[in-house]
C-alpha cells in the first residue's frame, strides 16, 4: 500500500465516508452522497485510492439477467489502509482546526 497519498479535501471526504463504516461495502452513489462530491470528482479519487492499495474493489455477485439490473461495484478500505486513513484524517483535522481553538486546547492541556 502506498501511504504517501496526497491528502486533499475531496480525498479526505471520501476517506471519512469510508472510515465511518469501515467494514461496510460502499458503492458510488452512496459515496457521492456521503462525501457530497460529484461523480466526476469521486471516481478519479476512488481509482487513485484503489491503485494505491487503500481500497478493495469488488463486483456485486448478482446475475444481471435475473436481477434485471447490472452488477454494481463496491469499495471497502483495506485492513492495512484503515489505521493509516484514520491517522491521516486526524492529522488533517488537527491542522485545519481554528487557531484559537487549537491554542485554547493547548493551554488547557498545559
Amino acid at each position: 500500500m502506498n501511504a504517501e497519498l496526497r491528502m486533499t479535501v475531496p480525498v479526505a471526504r471520501v476517506l471519512a465516508a469510508l472510515v465511518a463504516d469501515p467494514t461496510g461495502d460502499h458503492y458510488g452513489m452512496a459515496l457521492m452522497q456521503a462525501s457530497d462530491l460529484p461523480s466526476g470528482t469521486l471516481y478519479p479519487i476512488l481509482a487513485r485510492l484503489t491503485e494505491a492499495g487503500w481500497l478493495d474493489k469488488r463486483w456485486e455477485e448478482v446475475d444481471p439477467s435475473e436481477a434485471g439490473r447490472p452488477a454494481r461495484a463496491y469499495y471497502r478500505l483495506t485492513p492495512a489502509a484503515l489505521p493509516v486513513a484514520r491517522q491521516r484524517l486526524a492529522e488533517l483535522h488537527e491542522r485545519t482546526r481554528p487557531a484559537s481553538a487549537h491554542t485554547v486546547t493547548k493551554e488547557a492541556t498545559a
Binding site: G28, R69, P70, A71
Partner: peptide, 27 residues
C-alpha cells in the same frame, strides 16, 4: 460498467443527467 450500474440505480432524470455530465466533464 460501474457507471452504468450506478446510473441504472439512480432515481430521477436530473440526478442521472448530473451524474453522467459530471463524469463527462471531468478528467
Amino acid at each position: 460498467a460501474e457507471w452504468r450500474a450506478e446510473l441504472h440505480a439512480m432515481p430521477g432524470t436530473a440526478r442521472r443527467l448530473r451524474y453522467a455530465a459530471s463524469l463527462a466533464a471531468s478528467r
